[in-house]
Computed example of a mutant assay.
Amino acid sequence: MPVASGPLRDRVLETAIELGAAFGEDLYVVHLVDEETADGTAKRVRDEIRERVRSADIAATVSLEYVGHGLARAGPRIGQDVIELAADVTVTHIVMGHTSKGLLEELTRGSAAQAVIDAATVPVTVVPDAAETPAPEE
């Protein structure tokens, strides 16, 4: 489960915890950072994620992983990094978030989630941000 900073991280983490518990699977959570050397904020986020999965009573490995965001069409590059990480640790399912972008940003930056969906050899669950989630019918 790759996670980045931002409000979507908690929704992705909750979804992964629920799926891991339902299927009896351990989690491998990687916090994606755009600096080669993890700073205090990245380490704090990693520690918060570790505490959250620990409190959910599910086995998990939580790590930091550098991805280069400075590249043109960074989304596909990040997606490829996620696929390579998944292969390195032999995952059986990928859970990740997706935030809609405008057309210009989609064309210039690309979509990490779409790149993972296109290349993954395991099931992928994509968690949309709250703005993309339809309100429940009453």
Score class of each variant (00 low, 15 high):
1 M>F: 05
2 P>D: 08
3 V>H: 01
4 A>V: 10
5 S>C: 04
5 S>E: 15
8 L>H: 08
9 R>C: 12
9 R>G: 03
10 D>V: 12
10 D>S: 12
13 L>Q: 01
19 L>C: 08
23 F>Y: 15
23 F>M: 13
28 Y>P: 00
28 Y>Q: 11
28 Y>F: 13
29 V>L: 05
29 V>K: 00
29 V>P: 02
35 E>G: 09
37 T>G: 04
38 A>E: 06
38 A>G: 03
38 A>R: 05
45 V>P: 00
47 D>R: 14
48 E>S: 08
49 I>E: 00
59 A>L: 10
63 S>W: 02
70 G>V: 09
73 R>Y: 12
80 Q>A: 15
86 A>R: 03
88 D>F: 06
88 D>I: 00
89 V>K: 09
89 V>L: 06
90 T>M: 12
90 T>S: 15
91 V>L: 13
91 V>E: 05
93 H>T: 08
95 V>E: 02
97 G>E: 05
97 G>Q: 00
98 H>F: 06
98 H>P: 02
99 T>R: 15
101 K>G: 04
102 G>N: 12
104 L>W: 11
105 E>N: 10
106 E>W: 05
108 T>D: 00
109 R>C: 07
111 S>H: 06
111 S>V: 06
114 Q>W: 04
114 Q>A: 12
117 I>Q: 05
122 V>T: 13
122 V>E: 06
125 T>K: 04
125 T>I: 06
127 V>H: 01
129 D>C: 09
132 E>F: 07
137 E>R: 13
138 E>N: 09
